[in-house]
Write a protein that binds this DNA or RNA. Structure first.
Lengths: 297, 297
DNA sequence: TTGTAAGCGTTATCAA
DNA sequence: TTGATAACGCTTACAA
């Protein structure tokens, strides 16, 4: 079953390939009768023009996207990218195999290394153009706010220090504790331990717990609920990532939002510039914000 | 800034384009010295072969995927597709714009109509090859199990009847009630009302509530918890879709699982067959299963 | 081992 | 209004 080409259509309809092409693209004038005939043949043969030949001819663009994990945040960025670049007729192709990547690669995630040689990295700083998030300002704002509400002891539950975001958050937390001269704070590295268990290992119950991931916050909340600890009256819980489950939890989870569709769209704009040969910043820092819900004062 | 092509490389390196091509593809023998020189030029010019020209030449394949919503379930199918087809060097391209689709289109979702003219539909039955889910068997199994545990009154909370899955579930529920001669049951159509509110409108508290979506189940659980109703002791709640939040809720949500990565992989296999011109079934029915957690007996 | 040249399916230019 | 034909960048017989 050979693939039907524009040539076949032309033969069957008894016209030239240029006529078929004109019908296909609606460009130029074609005799209505001929047009009808060509369209009929196209329908009969179920002909589909080769998208590759088209893209090739039009020298269109496509970019490959690799995700460090197939997770909600990353997918939301992917969506923004797909939408904004799709408007420019640029295809965005998610790749799960790192071996066979194309000319323009975007890496979304936190645990890539420079071997990947991406053209743009989102969520992490590598040698390419990097789009990262301002973890410090928002965290600082949160802590200031909590301080003003009389909360003076904190804990930071962190997944570990093996990824970019976790490191940055850790650094930000330390800096903020120092800056506000807060002495009562505790840091727990989970390193793949269950947050439910780690929550119970806290030496004292702090006024607020900041978590480096929403999943951790969810585990902590479960642990506290089981122990009868009131959230947020006794302890405020704040997650990171604003995953979609947050609003369904009881109490609903306050969380820092970052890396959403908007990010994808912004990156799409920069990619467009890169493609057009414009210079773009080596590092782009996007802001984050707290989505306040019931789990925190 | 013109795009660098294989021709440029050949010129600069002082060899023919076939030599460059050979270096690029590692096929055929090339004098090590020449090879070195070519590689150097490639690096210097930052040359990337045009993926379109390559795909075109090799007559590779790509398929477009449209999602009715950019939601977790659909994305998981997309992932399965991407992985399984990626192994065959077939690119999977998510599209958010329905106007400019390619030769092979896969539709994932529940509210498409036949205008789309997809080659394969997942989650819904259209004129093309359709991959759908067996909603009846699993629901029947669930009800039988609950009956055997002494539960004899049921409710079905449904988002409405405007999508394929909801209709099928509704039909299955009715059939099952009839089949088991269950007389105490209640059906609520949400039609975009808040499940939290609808839960409180139930005329009696049934022994088990089946929901057409996990999000509904989450809302119901929240309402019941606020009213001090014990789950699952007083009422079993079962969701549909097994979204990732389910395990984080308290109590964790029992839910029917369908449309996951596996589905994507299976569809990938069928797509491969279609591409190779093999006949495949017009309708493929995949099974679902209950993931039992704390919210149900 | 290297280079020449044909061809992939389409679009666009130009002449008829 | 139509049809020949060149061109897009790359791979691959085939010839040198």
């Amino acid at each position: 079953m050979k693939k039907v080409t524009i040539k076949d259509i032309a033969n069957i309809a008894g016209v030239s390939i240029s006529t078929v092409s004109r019908v296909l693209n609606g460009k130029g004038n074609v005799d209505p009768q001929l047009k009808e005939r060509v369209l009929q043949v196209i329908k009969d043969t179920n002909f589909q023009p080769s998208s590759f030949a088209r893209s090739f001819r039009k020298s269109s663009m496509q970019i490959d996207v690799v995700l460090s994990k197939w997770e909600e945040h990353y997918l939301r960025v992917l969506r923004g990218l797909t939408e904004s670049l799709g408007e420019q007729q640029i295809s965005v192709i998610p790749k799960t195999n790192l071996n066979n990547l194309g000319d323009f690669v975007v890496a979304i995630g936190e645990d890539f290394d420079d071997k990947l040689n991406a053209s743009m990295t989102i969520g992490q700083e590598l040698s390419s153009c990097s789009v990262v998030f301002d973890h410090f300002s928002t965290l600082n704002l949160i802590v200031s706010e909590l301080l003003s509400k009389g909360i003076d002891s904190f804990a930071f539950l962190c997944e570990g220090l093996s990824n970019y975001r976790a490191c940055k958050l850790y650094g930000a937390f330390m800096k903020i504790m120092f800056h506000h001269k807060i002495e009562s704070y505790e840091i727990k590295m989970l390193n793949s331990k269950d947050p439910y268990d780690v929550a119970k290992e806290l030496s004292i119950l702090p006024g607020a717990i900041l978590c480096s991931k929403d999943e951790i916050a969810a585990g902590v909340m479960k642990a506290f609920k089981d122990e009868g600890i009131k959230i947020p009256q006794q302890v405020s819980i704040i997650g990171y990532g604003n995953f979609s489950c947050g609003s369904l939890l009881g109490p609903s989870l306050s969380s820092v939002e970052y890396m959403n569709e908007e990010t994808g769209r912004i990156c799409g704009q920069y990619i467009l510039k890169m493609i057009n040969g414009e210079e773009i910043p080596k590092k782009i820092v996007l802001s984050t914000r707290l989505v306040k819900r019931e789990s925190s004062l």
